[in-house]
């Protein structure tokens, strides 16, 4: 039975490679696609600078996806670091602890703004949070009643806005950007309406979910992928307005024009000073149980936080990151050194 031999060999090979639990000697990272470019730059330079460590591997999947992988448990087949464009939620922390991921080091490393951008050949927008809510909401208050969103053109919301079709391209719910978009733009805009304020007094939860409900007539497009997909939507539809990270806009200045919010341009200075309302801190989370097991884990965190890597004039700033202030950086470094867990 000659033909059985290769089968047997293949089976043996299979068993041979599967039995040992292979120890990993490089860091594995996953999570937010906003953080991905920054994290990749640091990973690459980390591997090149330190001859004794291999370059970490950086995956994407959105903040939510990264958290889920991070909280799968402890061991070489789980990731070591989760990138996030928002802080870890209490339910995620609980899920983590239930799976035995006890020590979690939270590291804040900089800021990013969220910008509303149209194609550079599209209209000029001077937005206010209320406009954003009214353009994308499922129902809006009108004459004391809630009615299905009647607006089809921006100029119907405010005469000063361009007379063009409303098409809003926003990140899907797997992205941390979506949450910041809701918290910093939609909800403030929604709560500024007197009818919603009254509703908030009666039932806060109900008012919030009312604000977050998006229209389903095709004028709001949710994008689950990266910002390039949002850009592709804009390429296909001249009138669309997209939601991007400031760093992404920085690399595509020739194609995009950003809208001001409350009259403030989304620039580095305005975000750092807090004038621009739609900005957020960026984080990564280190699995404390893997420190000392996966080589270079703590060193990666410290390298990331160093002034030359993520400070003023650093490669990350050139890639669009808004650096931490000196005091914030000192605190972040001290917390990491002390391995202060969540």
């Amino acid at each position: 039975m000659k033909f059985r031999i290769p089968v047997l060999a293949a089976a043996l090979l299979f068993v041979g490679v599967t039995t040992p639990a292979i120890a990993r000697d490089n860091i594995q990272i996953a999570g937010s696609s906003t953080v991905l470019p920054f994290s990749s730059i640091v990973a690459e330079n980390f591997g090149k600078t330190f001859p004794q460590f291999k370059a970490p591997v950086v995956g994407s999947g959105g903040t939510g996806g990264g958290m889920r992988q991070f909280c799968q448990g402890v061991g070489a087949n789980t990731i070591d670091i989760a990138n996030a464009s928002r802080p870890m939620r209490p339910d995620e922390l609980k899920a983590c602890q239930e799976k035995g991921v006890k020590g979690i080091l939270e590291v804040k490393f900089g800021y990013d703004g969220i910008v509303f951008a149209a194609r550079s050949d599209g209209g000029r927008f001077a937005l206010e949070p209320q406009h954003i809510f009214l353009a994308g909401a499922k129902e809006v208050p009108q004459g004391g009643k809630m009615v299905a969103n009647p607006y089809t053109r921006w100029s119907q919301i405010d005469r000063l806005l361009p007379n063009q079709e409303i098409v809003l391209v926003i990140p899907g719910s797997n992205h941390g950007t979506r949450e910041v978009y809701e918290e910093k733009a939609v909800i403030p805009g929604c709560m500024s309406l007197p009818e919603v304020k009254a509703m908030e007094k009666a039932d806060k939860k109900k008012a919030e979910s009312f604000c977050k409900a998006i229209r389903t007539d095709g004028r709001v497009v949710e994008v689950a992928g990266d910002y390039t997909e949002t850009l592709a939507r804009l390429d296909a539809q001249r009138t669309a307005l997209g939601v991007f990270g400031l760093s992404f806009y920085d690399q595509n200045r020739d194609r995009l024009r950003i809208a001001s919010i409350n009259g403030v341009e989304g620039s580095d200075e305005n975000i750092l000073s807090g004038k621009y309302p739609v900005s957020r801190p960026l984080f990564f989370y280190i699995k404390d149980a893997h420190v000392g097991v996966i080589p270079g884990l703590l060193e990666y965190g410290q390298y990331f936080l160093s002034q030359q890597v993520s400070g003023k004039g650093s490669p990350l700033e050139k890639a669009g990151l808004i650096p931490l202030s000196t005091a914030e950086r000192a605190k972040a470094i001290a917390d990491l050194k002390a391995r202060k867990s969540l």
Binding site: I22, Q28, I29, L36, A43, A55, P56, V57, S60
Partner: peptide, 15 residues
Amino acid sequence: MSAFVASIPATPFDQ
């Protein structure tokens, strides 16, 4: 396998 890998893999076990 869609992760960003900054080094050339030397064995099939490498990312």
